[in-house]
Amino acid sequence: MSRTGRICFTDSAGKALFSIPDGGFLRLSYGNGDENFALCHRLDETHAEIDGVRQSLKGFAQKMEQNKISFAPA
Rank of each mutant, 00 (worst) to 15 (best):
H47K: 07
S12N: 10
F18A: 04
F18G: 09
A38L: 03
V53C: 02
E49R: 04
R42Q: 11
G23V: 02
A38M: 12
F37A: 14
R42D: 02
D44V: 02
S19A: 05
G24D: 02
G23Q: 15
N32F: 15
G23E: 10
A38I: 01
A16I: 01
G14M: 13
T10F: 04
A48P: 08
R42W: 11
R27K: 10
H41W: 08
G52N: 09
A13E: 10
A16V: 14
K15G: 09
D11C: 10
L43I: 15
L17N: 05
P21W: 13
S12M: 05
L26W: 11
I20R: 10
T10G: 06
D22V: 11
D44K: 09
V53I: 10
C40V: 10
K15N: 11
S12K: 13
L39G: 08
L26C: 13
H47E: 10
A13W: 12
D22N: 12
S29D: 11
G14R: 15
F37I: 07
D34R: 04
R54Y: 01
N36M: 13
D34Q: 10
T10E: 02
S29W: 07
G31N: 07
N32G: 06
R42G: 03
T10W: 04
D51I: 07
F18K: 00
G24H: 00
E45A: 05
I20P: 00
P21T: 11
L43V: 02
H41Q: 08
L17Q: 06
I50D: 01
H41C: 04
T10V: 14
S12C: 02
L43P: 06
A13L: 12
E45M: 05
D11T: 08
T46S: 13
I20N: 09
F18Y: 11
D51S: 12
V53F: 06
L43W: 09
V53S: 01
S12Q: 07
E49Q: 14
G31V: 09
L17V: 03
E49T: 05
S19N: 05
R27F: 01
S29K: 11
G52C: 06
K15I: 15
I20A: 02
L43E: 13
V53W: 02
V53T: 14
L26T: 13
A38P: 06
G23D: 02
G14W: 14
F25R: 07
N36V: 05
S19W: 05
L28N: 01
G31W: 05
F18D: 06
F25I: 12
D34T: 01
G31M: 12
F37P: 11
N32S: 05
N32V: 09
A16Q: 15
F37V: 06
L28W: 00
I50S: 04
L28K: 04
F37R: 15
T10H: 00
D44Q: 03
L39Q: 07
L26V: 14
P21Q: 06
H41K: 10
